[in-house]
């Protein structure tokens, strides 16, 4: 079943250019994408191609200028739908303890205090941070903060989880363990996840499908047919290497296109 339909979505920003003149910068130039219910889809592409912009539209934090985004067939703006965003720099409220951070979504939804605490504790256990219930964010490591940020979103059971380079700031080991944890949680809850990363390996290991973006559009969709659960050793399997090569090629092509475009300017 299709959860999200993006139909020729356009988004532009008005910016001031290098000589101080106002001009419009077209970021999304007619993006089409269907996202299936319960799938793990990753957006991949050169820096500046509009991944974050698209995610912001899905999050309802900004609005498209043209085209439309449908959730379960209805326009996003007309539906008060539950979504959760995991930001790259965690965005935890620094004056709230871990448990109180986990409760925010439930608080907004008017869940009673006792019930709130119970549900939050359940998720705290899920991310193995029970001992840190009453710590403040600045007392946690980066990896712990990111786990809290992920749990904070899952706690209110959003229909759609959006993650913008959530692991980019973490060291390789923490990153790997969080990837495994994320997949474990995702398999238990089967939420639809839209994930953004610059790491090809990460994209292949996590996703059902990879949407390759370039120049404000989705250029190509790559199915990842690796069996689950996936393990690190699969990075040497032929299927993995095939996909890796394909994406590398696309990125290379894109880099060359941008370079010649730059030379033309």
């Amino acid at each position: 079943m299709v959860k999200v339909q993006a139909r020729s979505v356009k988004r532009e920003y008005s910016i001031v250019n290098s000589v101080g003149k106002k001009e419009t910068l077209s970021v999304l130039k007619g993006l089409d994408l269907d996202i299936n219910e319960g799938e793990f889809i990753t957006l991949l592409g050169q820096s500046g191609c509009g991944k974050t912009t698209f995610l912001n539209l899905l999050a309802g934090l900004e609005k498209e200028d043209e085209g439309e985004i449908l959730i379960d067939g209805k326009p996003l703006s007309e539906r008060d739908f539950n979504r959760g965003v995991v930001f790259q720099n965690y965005a935890l409220l620094p004056w709230r303890t871990v448990i109180k951070n986990l409760e925010i979504g439930l608080e907004i939804r008017g869940v009673k205090k006792k019930e709130r605490r119970e549900i939050a504790r359940k998720y705290l256990k899920l991310i193995n941070l029970t001992a840190f219930e009453n710590q403040y964010p600045h007392q946690l490591s980066g990896g712990m903060k990111q786990r809290v940020a992920i749990a904070r979103v899952l706690v209110y059971e959003p229909e759609l989880v959006l993650m913008d380079e959530p692991f980019a700031a973490l060291d390789a080991q923490t990153r790997e363990s969080l990837q495994i944890e994320l997949i474990r949680i995702w398999e238990a809850h089967k939420k639809t996840i839209v994930f953004v990363t610059h790491s090809i390996d990460e994209a292949i290991l996590l996703s059902d499908r990879i949407a390759f973006m370039s120049d404000g559009k989705v250029n190509e969709i790559i199915d990842v047919n690796l069996p689950r659960p996936r393990f690190k050793y699969m990075t040497s399997s032929s299927e993995f290497l095939k996909i890796h090569e394909k994406i590398s090629f696309l990125l290379q092509e894109e880099a060359e296109r941008l370079q010649s475009y730059g030379a033309y300017l």
Partner: peptide, 18 residues
């Protein structure tokens, strides 16, 4: 106040008052 904090609670469905 960091804009990302405001955006994060907004994305969770918070009202202006909240």
């Amino acid at each position: 106040v960091e804009p990302v904090l405001i955006r994060s609670v907004k994305s969770m469905g918070a009202s202006k008052m909240y």
